[in-house]
Write a protein that binds this DNA or RNA. Structure first.
Lengths: 190, 190
DNA sequence: CGCGTAATTGAAAAGTATCAACACTGGTGG
DNA sequence: CCACCAGTGTTGATACTTTTCAATTACGCG
């Protein structure tokens, strides 16, 4: 549920911070948006501390949460390669500290630092391989199974994330989330 | 719906075929599986001709189709980086011709050929950026809207792909697909 | 023709969303 | 200290959507 990438973060901390590498640091407060949907940016971000949500919102006002991103996760890098405007929105949930790198510097690193290149590819591969099963599971199983699964993976998911966000993450109505949670409690399954 | 990557295919055709590069060619018939779920392989594939489906199947027997892959699309590359067994199944829909490259050669190309490296990254970025909106749309909109959208993007989608596969792609029951198609016809929307 | 696969349909059951009302919480200012 | 407010969480009743299951038909091909 909350994705992390300690390997990437460690690498950046070790080799590029305080080293005149063009990597900047920025802070955000909860509910601040780092990236808005359908805009163009020239920065790639990597989370140093805190949690964000990555979501798409559609005309009818519904938000769909792609993922919750924690330490070491990148965002904004997809748009470097696709040359499209941002396809999702990134919003801070907790207090947040990020590193940011300009497109130009990011591309330079990709070309000249093989380890960095490989870490970025790995991070993208991870994004692909966890999205697929999740999408599949959400479509194929009833709400109850999805909640039990979340419960297993992240026992304290209700502590950090609001109910509304959880519902948006699961792609269901808030009411359905509450009802199902109650049913599970009644049957002592949770 | 049917993804393609002509740029990658053109590049491989131009520089690596019939050039002692370690790239092999293979043919498959409809319904043959190139990759099974949860196994380990040592090959990355690129489609030269034909169409495959990429799907996940779960214990309860349901298949969920991730994407239909056409010319130039790679598969098997994610597992090179994640080091996990295959997370999906790849099955030929039409007569199929693929190129295949061993993990070792693939890694060598990635390290030594910057253009190839960039093309692979771009292809992964594309996978991420079309999966996200699709997942979101399927969760947030009713079946009817999803079918109309498919209709717009691929007017002849019923010609090539079986009804069952379309239902599995949309994550709905076959019955629901048929009912909705009929309703749309009644209202002359299709 | 006969077979297997794919497509179609109706009726009932199950699952979800919608909407509106109400409760809880922490913070603010009088 | 209390009243108020906004944000978040909770709940019931109802309407709607989707699936399930089983039966039937259509199609392509040896």
């Amino acid at each position: 549920m909350i994705r992390r990438n300690p390997e990437l973060l460690a690498y950046i901390n070790e080799f590029y911070i305080e080293n005149e590498s063009g990597i900047l640091e920025e802070k955000y407060h909860p509910k601040q948006r780092i990236i808005e949907q359908n805009r163009r940016y020239n920065w790639v971000y990597i989370i140093k501390e805190g949690i964000t949500k990555c979501y798409l919102s559609d005309e009818n006002g519904k938000d769909f949460i792609q993922e919750f991103l924690g330490e070491g996760m990148e965002f904004g890098e997809i748009e470097v390669f696709s040359c499209n405007p941002s396809f999702c929105c990134i919003e801070a949930i907790t207090e947040l500290v990020v590193y940011k790198i300009s497109y130009i510097d990011f591309n330079t690193l990709l070309e000249n630092d093989k380890k960095f290149n490989r870490l970025v590819i790995k991070s993208m591969a991870a994004k692909i391989s966890y999205k697929a099963p999740r999408h599949s599971y959400q479509q194929s199983y009833p709400i109850e199974d999805n909640i039990l699964r979340l419960q297993q993976l992240f026992p304290e998911f209700t502590k950090i994330i609001s109910k509304n966000d959880i519902a948006n993450y699961l792609g269901i109505a808030l009411r359905s989330l509450n009802r199902t949670l109650n049913q599970l409690k009644d049957r002592n399954k949770i």
